[in-house]
Each structure stands twice: as structure tokens, then as C-alpha cells.
Amino acid sequence: MYLRSLEILRDEQTDLDRYPFSIPAVKRLDRLSFRSNVTFFVGENGSGKSTLLEAIAYQCGFHTAGGGRNNYYDVDSSHAALGEHIRLSWLPKITNGFFMRAETFYHFASHLDTLGGDSLRFYGGRSLHEQSHGEAFLALFRHRFGKKAIYLLDEPEAALSPARQLALLQTIKELENNAQFIIATHSPILLGYPNAQLLNFDVQPVQEIRYEETMHYILTRRFLENRKTVLRELFDQ
């Protein structure tokens, strides 16, 4: 494990009523500690998961629209609002890694196509645009990811079928002892990774939660076990 903790920086000029400090999880958060090589940020949309993950990427020197330290391209709205307001604690500090952001992955794939040369050999040898969305994600995970690095993944399940989510878990398992993963996700499949740290952004301050206590697990299990009842209750409201 490389990244041990993060701290939110505030001073007398900090306006807690303005974004990003207005996000409840950010407003109430002072320090977050990581105790596992695999950590998941879990919570509803708007709870602050992506905002904090983006800020970590900014402090790592990664492109905040997606990429590593050596990827340079322009994307609208890629500024990390919280990036300058956190401090990371490392042991040891590493500079290798990648920030994968599902919503801007298309722009990253286009950026790779402009580089030419041998750049695509790190992503399976062909343009990510020539593959399906899910295939492109897996090409990134399988060919770009390696040891002694930190990987920040923002909703990687967005283009992955359940079977390919399991393939991602396999990749994480292969690298777990020599890499660190911090993942924001809604996937009950990914959240089931063994011995992962799950941090719940739906409570303030952010705190650890057991897999079986997450709403993702509870709702998915209830639906699968009582599909007709759940749908009847939903549609009869």
C-alpha cells in the first residue's frame, strides 16, 4: 500500500457553503485513512465519491479527465475543484499510475489515436475506438496496468457486463500485492472483492461499511430474490 491517508485543507477563507465544500461528505471530512490495497468509495450519485477521487488524481499528477502523468489533452470541465485542497500522505510515494474516468474515456481514447507510434502497444496494440466500449475498458486494465502503481477508477463498471466485471476483479487480484486501487463504484459485483475497504459516502463523516450493509447489496439481493414483489411495489406507488 502506498497512499496511506488524505487530509482536507481548510482555512479562514474557505466557504463551506460553496462547491465543493458544500458537498456533505466533503464538509464533514477532515481525514481519510486507507488500510487496504483495494478501497471502494460507495454512495449515491452526488455524494462526493468522484469529487474526492478526482482530487486524488490531481494530487498524483494524473490528467483529471483520465490518464497518467504524461497524458496531455484538453477536455471541458476537467478541472478538479477539490484538487488544491487536499494533502496526501504516502509511504513510499510513487508517481506511476492511472486515473480512469468512465464519462470522459472517449476523449482519452481519441487522445491516444493522435499520439501514433508505439503508444497503442500499452493498450493492446490497436485503437480503443476500434473496440467496443467494454473491450476498450478491459484492454486498458489488462495492458496498461502493472506493478508499483496506484490506480484510481471512477465507475469502471459503466461499460462492463457482469462477466467482464468479474474479469476486472481478476486483474485486480493479479496486481493487488504490488499495486493500490481506489475505486468509486455502484456495482455490487465489484464491491464484493474480498477483504476490500469500503468507505460509505452516504453518511457524514465518511466511514467504513460492511459489504452486506451497502444499499447496493441490499437492493440487488432483494430484487433478485423477490423480483415480482419489488416490481409490483414499485409500479403500484
Rank of each mutant, 00 (worst) to 15 (best):
G134L: 05
L115I: 12
S127V: 10
F137D: 13
L224N: 13
T64V: 11
K49P: 06
I150Y: 07
E157A: 02
K27A: 12
S89A: 13
E44Q: 15
A65N: 09
F223K: 13
M1W: 15
Y2G: 08
H85T: 01
D17N: 11
T171H: 05
A149E: 08
S132N: 12
G46F: 05
A139W: 01
K228C: 10
S47E: 01
L168G: 01
T185H: 05
R31T: 14
T51G: 05
L32A: 04
S5R: 04
N195F: 06
F40Y: 12
Y123Q: 11
F141Q: 04
H216Y: 11
E135M: 08
Q59R: 15
M1G: 15
G48K: 01
G46R: 01
G68A: 11
A25N: 05
N37P: 03
P188Y: 03
N226F: 05
Q180N: 08
L153H: 02
D113V: 06
Y217R: 03
K49W: 00
F235N: 03
M1D: 13
S33Y: 09
R164G: 04
N226T: 11
E7W: 01
R142H: 14
Q204F: 10
D15I: 09
L234H: 14
Q59D: 11
T220M: 09
H129A: 04
L16V: 10
G117I: 04
G61D: 12
L120F: 07
G61R: 06
L32K: 06
E84T: 14
L91I: 01
N200Y: 01
S132R: 04
H79R: 13
L120Y: 02
Q59V: 03
L160R: 00
F235L: 15
D74E: 15
N195A: 10
G134W: 00
R10A: 13
G146V: 00
A109R: 02
I150D: 04
R28T: 15
R31Q: 10
A57D: 03
R232K: 14
R87E: 10
G67S: 07
A80M: 03
T214C: 15
F122C: 03
P162S: 07
E103G: 00
I172S: 07
R121K: 12
L199S: 10
D76A: 12
R101I: 08
Y123L: 11
K93D: 14
I218Q: 14
M100V: 06
A81T: 07
G192D: 14
H129N: 15
S110H: 13
E176M: 08
F223M: 13
